[in-house]
Amino acid sequence: MLELKNVSYTVKAGQDSYDDRDHDIIRDLSLTVEPGKLIVITGPNGGGKSTLSKLIMGIEQPTGGTITFDGTDITHLPIDERARLGIGYGFQQPARFTGMKVAKLIRIASGEKRMSSAACNKYLSAVGLCSANYLDRDVDKSLSGGELKRIEIASILARNPKLAIFDEPEAGIDLWSFDKLTATFEELHKTQPDHTILIISHQERIMQMADEIIVIKDGEVTRRGTRDEIYPTLMFSKNQDPACAFTRTAEAVSY
């Protein structure tokens, strides 16, 4: 359903680059994604995972290569057209809006202007935001990081795109909501066999749900295979420090 051919993304010196050098952020990357799969993309910080998602969504333009979605060349399509074709992206760092209610964002995402509060709440509880008064909150700086992140994910659930990309959905989310979230992803994967879920994650539990794992490092796919092939090679070293027993951060991973 999604095919990237020789995609590259270079930031030129003197343009967007923060210094006076060119940066090859994605290098000649080719990748095919089959429909119905739950795929986890992992890899070291700065490896290019978010950039890759933004290239797929159209937020950044590749400097080389082509991107095809369901047979359509989308390489140069604007963001909103890709959205209408069925691509969705939950940001690693979600945007905030002054004066916009959570309910409004969910309704815009779903495309149903008159969606009932009960229906909106369904998406919020899927990410562990159970109290009804969230619908009336503003999506602005009054929300905590974890609340905002979960509302971002809920907006993608409400949109229900054919290809849903979640960029580190676990980041900043508490234990209880994380449980709810993984259950939601599993449910989604099971009940919609023609939809594809791409999750960028450093989280062990999320990787265990994957049909396939892709490792991206220095802008390239360094490894790809089924969960059972890739997962054991990632070599988790469990953090046994009891002081950290209540924080479930990404366990140390060696790629």
């Binding site: 604007p78 963001i79 909103d80 959205a83 209408r84 979600p94 945007a95 815009i108």
Partner: peptide, 19 residues
């Protein structure tokens, strides 16, 4: 904020008006 609304299918103009 404009980009986020565009990823939800709004055109740039619609996103601006909404914001």
């Amino acid at each position: 904020a404009i980009v986020k609304l565009m990823t939800l299918g709004l055109t740039e103009e619609e996103a601006e008006e909404q914001i």
